Simulated scan of single mutants.
Amino acid sequence: MIKRSLSAASWGLSATAAGVLLVGCSGSVSLGTSTPEVSKDKLADTVAERLAATTGQAKPDITCPEALEGKADATTRCALTATDGSTLGVTVTVSAVDGDNVDFGIKADDTPTPAS
């Protein structure tokens, strides 16, 4: 089960080629394991769903290179790839862990990296 909530602090980024506006947000994933961890695929999917729901845009292409450890303040970096090939870094930070439930915040960088 995935629970999401919009954080109080919000930020914006206009990616001209992608035409998207991203907003700071948070998410939560409930896992059925003894060691809380959000797999890289589940994390990427949750981040993409939350950004799409927040912006009203299509679900972006998000990739996360590693799982997110279920420890308070643990972080990982994911990447949003726009249709023109430019990328935007996204930091995911664990805000709380309650049993198997991992709550995390999502914040994108202010500036995209142009396509190669």
Rank of each mutant, 00 (worst) to 15 (best):
I2N: 12
R4E: 13
L6E: 06
S7N: 09
A8W: 06
A9S: 13
S10V: 12
G12T: 10
S14V: 05
S14M: 06
A15D: 09
A15T: 04
A15F: 01
T16W: 11
V20P: 00
V20Y: 06
V20L: 03
V23K: 11
S26A: 15
S26N: 09
S26G: 15
S28A: 15
S28K: 12
S28T: 15
S28Q: 14
V29N: 04
P36L: 08
P36G: 13
E37V: 05
V38F: 05
S39V: 06
K40A: 14
K40M: 08
K42M: 13
D45G: 02
D45L: 04
V47Q: 00
A48E: 06
E49D: 15
E49Y: 13
L51D: 02
A53D: 11
A53F: 12
T54M: 13
G56E: 03
Q57T: 14
A58N: 13
K59M: 11
K59P: 00
K59G: 05
P60D: 09
D61H: 01
E66V: 15
G70T: 07
G70E: 07
K71D: 03
D73W: 09
A74Y: 00
T75V: 13
T75C: 10
L80F: 14
D84S: 13
G85Q: 06
G85K: 03
S86G: 13
S86N: 10
T87P: 01
L88F: 02
L88R: 11
G89Y: 02
G89E: 08
V90E: 00
T91C: 03
T91S: 00
T91A: 05
V92T: 08
V92I: 10
S95K: 11
S95P: 01
A96R: 10
V97M: 08
V97H: 07
N101Y: 05
N101H: 11
V102Y: 01
D103Y: 01
D103W: 02
F104S: 04
D109L: 00
D110R: 12
P112M: 09
P114Q: 05
A115T: 06
A115H: 07
